[in-house]
Simulated assay, not measured.
Amino acid sequence: MSSISERYPVSCAFCKIAKAYPAESSPVPANPDPELIDPGCYLILSTPQVMAFLDIMPIAPGHILLTTRPHYEKLSDMYAPPKSSDWASEKTATQAKEVSQAIGEWLPIVSRALCSVTGIEDWNVVQNNGERAAQVVPHVHFHLIPRYQEGRREIGGKGKVDYGMLKSWKVFGRGSREDLDEEEAQVMASSLREALKAELGGGKAKL
Rank of each mutant, 00 (worst) to 15 (best):
S2T: 09
S2W: 13
I4L: 12
S5W: 11
S5V: 14
S5M: 10
S5N: 12
E6P: 12
Y8L: 03
P9E: 01
C12S: 14
A13W: 07
F14C: 04
K16A: 12
I17G: 02
A18Q: 03
A20V: 08
P22G: 09
A23Q: 07
E24R: 08
E24H: 05
E24T: 15
E24I: 09
P32H: 03
D38S: 13
P39V: 04
P39A: 06
Y42A: 08
L43G: 13
I44R: 00
I44W: 04
L45G: 06
P48E: 06
M51S: 07
I59L: 15
I59H: 08
G62R: 01
I64R: 00
L65P: 00
L66G: 01
T68F: 10
R69V: 06
R69C: 08
P70F: 07
H71N: 03
K74G: 07
L75K: 04
P81G: 07
P81E: 12
S85C: 08
D86H: 14
S89A: 15
K91D: 15
A93R: 01
T94V: 13
A96H: 09
A96I: 03
E98R: 14
V99A: 10
Q101K: 09
Q101F: 07
A102Y: 01
I103K: 04
G104A: 11
E105H: 11
I109D: 02
S111F: 03
R112P: 07
R112Y: 11
A113R: 02
S116L: 13
S116W: 02
V117K: 02
V117T: 06
G119P: 12
E121Y: 11
D122V: 13
V125K: 01
N128G: 13
N129A: 07
N129K: 10
G130F: 15
E131H: 11
A133N: 11
V136H: 05
V137H: 09
P138E: 00
V140K: 03
V140Y: 00
H141F: 01
H141C: 04
L144M: 10
I145M: 06
P146G: 03
P146S: 02
Q149M: 09
Q149F: 08
R153C: 09
I155H: 01
G156A: 05
G156R: 03
G156N: 05
G157A: 13
K160M: 11
D162Q: 02
G164V: 12
M165T: 02
W169I: 05
K170L: 15
K170M: 14
K170G: 13
V171T: 12
V171E: 09
G173N: 14
G175E: 07
G175C: 11
S176M: 14
E178I: 11
D179I: 00
E183G: 05
E184Y: 04
E184W: 01
A185S: 07
A185Q: 03
A185N: 02
Q186M: 09
A189Q: 03
S190A: 14
S190K: 09
R193K: 08
E194Q: 11
L196Q: 00
A198T: 10
A198M: 09
E199S: 06
E199A: 04
L200P: 00
G202K: 04
G202F: 04
K206Q: 13
L207T: 03
L207S: 01
